[in-house]
Design a protein around this nucleic acid. Structure first.
Ligand SMILES: [Mn+2]
Ligand SMILES: [Mn+2]
Ligand SMILES: [Zn+2]
Ligand SMILES: [Zn+2]
Lengths: 139, 139
DNA sequence: TTCTACATTATAATAGTTCTAAACTGTTGA
DNA sequence: TCAACAGTTTAGAACTATTATAATGTAGAA
C-alpha cells in the first residue's frame, strides 16, 4: 500500500503513466530487500504468481524497456540467447556461473579500480564492467 | 597454397576432417594480418565474396561452433541480438563503440591486472574480461 | 574399391523479441 | 464533470538469429 503510491509518483515524475500493469511490475521489481537479475521469462513467471490479472507479454517487454530507458534497470551483456536485466543500477560487476547459468553481483568495492592505458580518440568512456566467468572446481 | 596445407593439418590434428568448406573458412578467418571480430552474417558475406562455391548457412554455424569448441575462436558477450566471435583467442579486453556498434580490442598489457577481492566457494575462475563501453564525445 | 562415420545441405522448426493495429485508459482543460 | 486525446495495453502476426532434421555427399580407413 505504502509503496503503491511511491511507484505512482515515481512513474509520474518519469513521464510514464502509472497504469496498473506498470505499478504491479514496479512492485515485483523494486519492492524487494535485495536487487536481482532476471530474464523477461523470469519476470513473466513472477507476475503470474503475484496476480490473477494477466499482463500481456508485449506490455512486459514495453515496460522493461521503458524502465531501462529511465535508468531503473540495467541490461547485462551475458553471452546468451536471452537478455538479462538487473534491478541493481549501481556501478558493479558480475560473476557468471557457467554451470548454473547464474549471475552474481560483485560489489564495486570488491574490484580494484580498472585502469585502462589506452583510449580511442573522439570517444568517451561510458562504462567499465568486469565479467568473471566461473565454473565448478571439478570441471 | 602454403596456408592451405597448414589448415588441412590443423584441422586433422583437431579431429576435424579437412573439408573444402572448413578450409575455405579457415582461410577467411585465420589467413589475415590482424585478428578481427565478426558475426555469422559478416562471415557469410566474406565467404560469398571469396568464393563462388556457396557454403550453406548450417555449415557456417557448424564450423564456427566447432572452431570455438576447439579454441580457435572466442565468443564475445556483447549485449546484442547476435553472437560476436573473435579470431583473437588470447586473453584480452574490449571497447564497444555504442555509436558504431563496433568491437575494438584492448591488449591485455593495456589493462592493469583486475583484482577481485571476493570469491565464490566451490567455484574457480575461468576468465576475467573487461568491457569498456564508449560513445562519441558529443553524445 | 568399398564401407562407414563424419560432414554438408536445404529446409523446417524454434524461440526470443518486435511490430501492428484495434481497444482501452489516464490526464487535461473547457 | 466529462469530452477529447495522447499514451498504453493487448492478441496475435511478423521477424530474425539460431538450431534441428533428415537426406545426400565425402574423407579416410581397411
Ligand atoms: Mn551462444
Ligand atoms: Mn537488447
Ligand atoms: Zn548485477
Ligand atoms: Zn577481441
Amino acid at each position: 500500500m505504502l509503496n503503491y503510491s511511491n511507484y505512482i509518483e515515481k512513474l509520474r515524475t518519469s513521464g510514464l503513466r502509472p497504469t496498473k500493469q506498470r505499478i504491479k511490475i514496479c512492485e515485483i521489481l523494486f519492492n524487494t530487500e535485495k536487487t536481482f537479475h532476471f530474464t523477461i521469462n523470469d519476470l513473466v513467471k513472477k507476475i503470474s504468481k503475484a496476480t490473477n490479472n494477466k499482463i500481456s507479454l508485449a506490455t512486459v517487454y514495453n515496460t522493461v524497456h521503458a524502465f531501462k530507458k529511465k535508468g531503473y534497470l540495467k541490461e547485462i551483456p551475458i553471452n546468451s540467447d536471452q537478455s538479462y536485466f538487473d534491478t541493481n543500477t549501481s556501478h558493479h560487476h558480475h560473476f557468471y556461473d557457467e554451470n548454473q547459468k547464474d549471475l552474481i553481483d560483485i560489489d564495486d568495492a570488491d574490484v580494484e579500480p580498472v585502469k585502462i592505458n589506452t583510449r580511442i580518440p573522439g570517444k568517451k568512456i561510458k562504462s567499465v564492467e568486469v565479467l568473471v566467468k566461473v565454473e565448478d572446481i571439478n570441471s
